[in-house]
């Protein structure tokens, strides 16, 4: 219970930052809407390619894809906060308290997950207004949350280990596009080259995209396992950081 309470108290810190920067809050709200409208317009033609096989509208297909894309890209930047904390001295202050290390990660991840869930709700809302049918909205929210949590932890761990903004920016820019385009987020993989289909089997973004359209326990389970694993990694990263001090 202490762990939960500590995580909650840590997360308040991040929620306040979000609420105190109206510009940031606005971006959080507007970004998903832009993505949906833009990608929707751009990819409308894609669903008309023979063999795409979607029987619903293009929005039905695209909405989950945009949600998972947004989840990884939002989560990727989470580690920036820890880098700032390390440079400012706040991290060292937190680490000499007896608090559970995991709380620092969980608190920061919680903020990311809540943001992503709100963004997902916005996207679902707008898609419904535009006439889409979202068959599994609950599962979509769940996989978006899991994907965001997994990548936020990963980003936190990387941030603590590298301690440099440039390294994290590099890692995120390097990984984001391949993760998205080597998945079925925006494009049905039966239309892609075979090797992409193979690679996608190992891509968490694809697990999320597939499970959101056609829920399956295996992929959701894999996402949950990844979330736990990267949470462990982020928590371990503090000990590795301390060893370098």
């Amino acid at each position: 219970m202490t762990a939960v309470r500590q995580s909650w108290q840590v997360s308040l810190r991040y929620f306040r930052v979000l609420l105190r920067q109206p510009a940031f809050l606005l971006i959080t709200i507007v970004q998903p809407l832009i993505w949906l409208l833009l990608f929707g317009a751009l990819f409308k033609a894609v669903t008309q390619i023979p063999g795409f096989g979607g029987n619903g509208s293009y929005l039905d297909y695209l909405t989950p894809g945009i949600v998972v894309m947004l989840a990884v890209s939002s989560a990727g930047w989470t580690g920036m906060g820890f880098i700032e904390d390390i440079n400012s001295g706040v991290m060292d202050r937190l680490l000499v308290t007896p608090a559970w290390r995991g709380a620092f990660n969980v608190g920061s991840v919680a903020q990311c997950v809540v943001s992503v869930v709100l963004q997902t709700l916005l996207i679902i809302g707008l898609a419904l207004l535009m006439g889409a049918e979202i068959a599994h909205a609950g599962v979509l929210l769940l996989v978006a949350a899991l994907l965001a949590a997994a990548f936020a932890s990963l980003s936190n761990g990387l941030g603590v280990l590298t301690r440099q903004r440039e390294s994290l920016i590099g890692a995120v820019s390097l990984l984001l596009l391949p993760l998205t385009f080597l998945s079925s987020a925006l494009m049905q993989l039966s239309l892609a080259p075979g090797w992409i289909e193979t690679v996608a089997k190992f891509n968490p973004v694809d697990w999320a995209a597939v499970a959101a359209r056609d829920p399956d326990l295996l992929r959701i389970g894999l996402l949950a396992a990844l979330t736990v694993l990267s949470g462990w990694f982020a928590t371990r990263a503090f000990a590795i950081y301390q060893r370098s001090l």
Partner: peptide
């Protein structure tokens, strides 16, 4: 511990900094 560098969170208020610290203990 009061480290050489500042350790208060600059984005939080004094009260918020102290409340978080209390909760961590």
């Amino acid at each position: 511990v009061v480290a050489q560098k500042h350790s208060a969170d600059p984005d939080a208020t004094a009260r918020e900094n102290l409340v978080l610290q209390a909760e961590l203990y």
